[in-house]
Write a protein that binds this DNA or RNA. Sequence first.
DNA 1: AAAAGGACCTGGTGGC
DNA 2: TGCCACCAGGTCCTTT
Length: 280
Amino acid sequence: MPELPEIETICQGIIPHIVDKKIKTVIIRQSQLRWPVTEDLARLLSQQTIKSVYRRGKYLLLQTAHTVDHPVGHLLIHLGMSGNLRILPATTQINKHDHVDIIFEDGSCLRYHDPRRFGCILWTTDNPDQHPLLVNLGVEPLMASFNASYLAQRAAGKSIAVKNWIMNSQLVVGIGNIYANEALFLAKIHPLQPVKTLNFDDCQRLVTAIQQVLQQAILLGGTTLRDFTDSQGKAGYFQQELAVYHCQGEVCKRCQTGIIQRLMINQRASFFCPVCQPHP
DNA sequence: AAAAGGACCTGGTGGC
DNA sequence: TGCCACCAGGTCCTTT
């Protein structure tokens, strides 16, 4: 389900509902996610307060504390391919795949739902930036450190296809299959182009395109292909803006000439306009 | 070292 | 209707 814009949407959506709230208990109905959910989360989190919520790549981090001045830990949440978080009254009917509830003293609940169970919920009392899952993450695409110079420098000598390259979270975080396709279309770069053949202008256009597509998607509340919703259960509207993703066979919205093509690259469906994005 | 492939899961869809 | 193959928003681990 979720790439950076969807995670950001959920992050902003849950902040007003959980920050400064005290946790009453945690219910784990299914602990077997990508990694086992910490068994005694209820004991560890009971009576703690959520002090802040932020996003790093596709991870959500919930900082908890007994008091304002003494942070004691972070909950790392990843939604995998099919995960979602909802804010609900704790009494709301449980559905299939509702694996974890974080229940607050005021009767509200942060409910984790994930049919495929590729996501995770992990607890750490260490510096989360040094956590094995976060420590090797690359730059945030909407920050200044993500720029043409950075890309050009990292591209040198590499033969990897540009689409796979920008989906590598050790280079830049948050770009999944939808936005990789859309950004390459905007930048007019063929998804199979080897990155060592990108010139500085290509890198500049790629940076601009990635930022533009992510920002626009955040503005529209993310992309709902099948089942993505925000923390209130509302669908996103960016799917209406998709220019190439799942558009194979359609006439290109930009040049009105090319027919959008689909091909598999590293087992992921890829879409492009053969006129706007000529093969290198 | 870099790049590609496999694995982990469930559910939806379309063909026969 | 049933069965089956294939596809899906991610990413770690293994193999080449």
